[in-house]
Structures are given as structure tokens and as C-alpha cells.
């Protein structure tokens, strides 16, 4: 029923071709990229070195994000301890006012940097780790419970021992017959069109 309403949307999600080794998948990905397809993706059950480049895509910018959060964590640690343990500074947040409470502990200087390093270090690590974990999933738009690829029976092998190349229907060069012919030329084990 809903198919008739989605006039602007391509009929299928794309077409997948199945391969049985990382090498053949890699070769196929390179050929597909060189043939001018841009909306393509490769699926495998373990990471394959150089696959992103073979698909003509850019490597992730995750490390920069993690670095940024690590820096924020470090500043948080230093500020938190400097403010609460070495100053009486009042900070207003909304209707509330919070004060630092400097205390002399064992005659140590107020800014006891050697003693502030452990907590600063831990917070740096904590913030970076959170950024790494959540960054991985958020940038990948996960969690995503439904995806058209899950409709394919064969695709469940992508997480086991088979390797898939997908040309998506939103690719400007995508044309059902032609694309199928192109994929046929890559010698895959099977080809399947994926619906929504």
C-alpha cells in the first residue's frame, strides 16, 4: 500500500553481490569504484585493511574527536580540583551559587599539582574513552534496529563467512539492468536486489 505513496523514493535499496573471500571483495570494490559508482559499501565479518580506500571513501575522523574530548577531560579535572580545593571562588549557575572551599591539608600548597595529577589523568582517559565508544556508534548511525539489508536471507552470512558488496539505489549511476550486468562481470557467487 505504502509503495504507491513513495513516488520519489527508488523502489529498492540497492543490489548486493556475494563473494567468498576478502581478496575478491576488495578487487570487486576497486573495480566498482573505478567504474564511477560512489554510493557503495562493502560488508564483511571482520575488518579488512584498506577497504575504505578501495571503496573510494575517506578514513574516519574519530581520532580528532577523541583527542578533543580527552583535552576537555583534562581541563575538567584541573578546573574541578583547582576550583574546589584551592580557591573559594563562587560560581553562579542559574539560581544557584557554588563555592570552592580551599583547605590546608598537611601544610601542602593550595595548588598541590603533584596531588592533582592522578584525578586529572583519570578524567582525561574517561572522557576520551567515552568519546571513542559513543563516537563509533553515533557516527555510524547506530543503534539502528531496522535496515533494508536485513531483509536479505543471504546477507545474514555477512556476519559469518561471506563478503558482500552493495551498490545502493541512490547512486546516480544506478540502473537496475546495467548495474546487475556490471556486478555479473565481477564474478560474484550470487546477486540479489534488496527491497525496502
Amino acid at each position: 500500500m505504502s509503495h504507491e505513496q513513495e513516488t520519489h523514493r527508488p523502489e529498492s535499496y540497492g543490489m548486493i553481490a556475494e563473494f567468498d573471500s576478502p581478496e575478491t571483495l576488495m578487487a570487486a570494490a576497486e573495480k566498482t569504484r573505478d567504474a564511477g559508482y560512489s554510493r557503495i559499501d562493502a560488508y564483511s565479518s571482520f575488518p579488512i585493511e584498506g577497504m575504505v580506500e578501495a571503496l573510494g571513501q575517506k578514513r574516519t575522523g574519530l581520532p580528532k574527536l577523541i583527542l578533543l574530548f580527552g583535552f576537555i577531560g583534562m581541563c575538567t579535572g584541573l578546573f574541578l580540583q583547582g576550583w574546589t580545593a584551592a580557591s573559594n571562588l563562587g560560581i553562579t549557575i542559574g539560581p544557584y551559587m557554588f563555592y570552592g572551599y580551599s583547605m590546608n591539608i598537611g601544610g601542602r600548597p593550595m595548588l598541590s599539582f603533584p596531588n592533582f595529577i592522578p584525578v586529572t589523568f583519570e578524567l582525561t582517559i574517561l572522557f576520551s574513552a567515552l568519546a571513542a565508544f559513543f563516537g563509533t556508534f553515533i557516527l555510524s548511525k547506530l543503534p539502528m534496529p531496522y535496515h533494508p539489508l536485513f531483509n536479505s536471507e543471504r546477507f545474514s552470512l555477512a556476519s559469518q563467512d561471506k563478503f558482500f558488496l552493495c551498490i545502493e539505489a541512490r547512486d546516480p549511476q544506478y540502473e537496475k539492468g546495467k548495474t546487475e550486468e556490471f556486478l555479473e562481470g565481477l564474478n560474484p557467487d550470487s546477486i540479489e536486489e534488496i527491497g525496502h
Binding site: 570494490a29 559499501d41 562493502a42 560488508y43 564483511s44 565479518s45 571482520f46 575488518p47 579488512i48 577497504m51 575504505v52 571503496l55 571513501q57 578514513r59 574516519t60 574519530l62 581520532p63 577523541i66 589523568f121 583519570e122 582517559i125 576520551s128 574513552a129 571513542a132 565508544f133 563516537g135 563509533t136 556508534f137 557516527l139 555510524s140 547506530l142 543503534p143 539502528m144 534496529p145 531496522y146 535496515h147 539489508l149 555477512a158 556476519s159
Partner: peptide
Amino acid sequence: LGWRGSAKHWDRFTTAYLILAGLSTPL
């Protein structure tokens, strides 16, 4: 979480995994 094993996912995954390993070591 809907993991599909796409090349992009793996790229982020291995990057994050290695960096987490790098963070865990001094930790």
C-alpha cells in the same frame, strides 16, 4: 545495535578499538 559490518563501521570500530587499547594501557 544493528551492526552490519559495513566498511565504514569497521573503520570506526578498529580505530576506536585501537585507541581504547591505547587508553587502557596507561589506565
